[in-house]
Nucleic acid binder design. Structure first.
Lengths: 237, 237
DNA sequence: ACCTGAACACCGTTCAAGT
DNA sequence: ACCTGAACACCGTTCAAGT
């Protein structure tokens, strides 16, 4: 909660003046266009045709701006359309998480912005509501429902963060990711078989190019595990 | 692979001179003492009683230093002692992942350093070897083994990253995390029940203080899901 | 109420020059 | 082979001052 609010400047509206919403919108634009590393207070100020120190009237510091951004980032995600009340909660959650991943991949650096932020903003709460609905309809208890929400969303966020971060300094400096993966595979295949028997044995599978399949693998294990949990609970009652 | 190596300065050893190992050791020290945000090239140079530009003889840029750090960070992790050949692979993997989490929590900012880096350094490979061994002994196929390794380690890393990051700008600025959690619970409890029925219903469970239980919840679902997968595969053969 | 200019204390990195 | 000094192009943030 910022100490000052700019929204009610309409009370006497003498100056057009910038609103907090305009600031976050500009930040979102800059993020999408130039990436998180380029999102400095000075650049953002430029985007708003303003001087950098002026931003501190709307926001206490950059961290608070990023908190705002983290929630604003989720504005266009549509999970509601995936709600199905046919009892197939596994498929419902699966599709929601796949959509969540796709969405995050479409928003530049969203994984890094979201990492480790619990903002409870309006958009986050809306999506939590939808996901929690699916979990509760499946029949989970309250604590299980809450924990399941975190397990699922955190899996997706962690995966996307990993997936979108430069895998190494090489890639950050411009090496083609596919080339990097191939080099990694090569590297793994030629390790000492005495020292790393297991790594060598599955080497080529560790650096698989089909990253979506890897995402689905973990997601499906998680969902299977949730089903087991649900069956166990039902068996008791 | 850095373009220059300093290790073989022993070939004629006229100067004591700094080695690459000394650089990463100093970086590790600085990280543990002052945190990642304080780990600048200038600070690190200070730690080595050297000028900042000198570091660029050992390392191409800061990103490469962080890659080195990411592997060095894993040096003291001991998973070998958790190997048990009694067939209880679920317990084996569970204990390994719990140990991994505890270890990461003990190393300052390790989650942030590790996030999104696939370095294939010697320490990483050693731990991968141990974990892959447990998964393979359980009877998983090669691709499943590789994917399982990622699902498990990524879950742990993602969880720890979330767990150790400041939850919001408030906490970053000094608000007590417990206080923040309580405020969050309070906030959730007073939301509009029409707009957020599910969030309100499980509200108090969403901000549970027992974060370890939440970690175990997701971990156990993942492990249960892996068991299901294994049983399905065995049923086919 | 909103915005600016000037300033402080930093960054990562390059590059010519030293030994 | 290893290290430095000086410099470039940036940062986030504070603060007194303007309108």
């Amino acid at each position: 909660m910022p100490a000052q609010r700019a929204a009610n400047s309409a009370s006497r509206q003498p100056r057009p003046s910038i609103t907090l919403e305009a600031v976050t919108a500009a930040a979102l634009r800059t993020l999408q266009r130039d990436g998180l590393d380029s999102l400095s207070m000075r650049r953002l100020a430029d985007e708003l045709s303003i001087q950098a120190p002026s931003l501190y009237w709307y926001v206490r510091n950059k961290d608070e701006l990023l908190d705002l951004l983290a929630d604003a980032l989720l504005a266009d995600l549509r999970l509601d359309t995936l709600v199905r009340d046919d009892g197939d909660w596994r498929r419902e959650l699966r599709e929601m998480m796949q959509e969540y991943r796709k969405y995050l991949l479409s928003k530049r650096d969203s994984g890094r912005v979201l990492a480790g932020r619990l903002q409870l903003g309006p958009h986050f709460l809306h999506h939590a509501e939808v996901i929690l609905g699916a979990v509760r309809r499946a029949g989970f208890g309250d604590q299980d429902t809450a924990d399941s929400l975190y397990s699922l969303t955190q899996y997706v966020q962690g995966f996307v963060l990993h997936e979108t971060s430069p895998l190494s300094a090489d890639v950050a400096r411009g090496t083609d990711p596919m080339e990097f993966l191939e080099a990694a595979r090569d590297r793994l295949a030629h390790l000492s078989e005495e020292e790393y028997p297991n790594v060598v044995a599955v080497g080529s599978r560790l650096a698989r190019p089909d990253i979506e399949a890897r995402f689905n693998y973990g997601l499906d294990r998680l969902l299977d595990g949730l089903r087991v949990r649900l069956e166990e609970a039902n068996a008791l009652s």
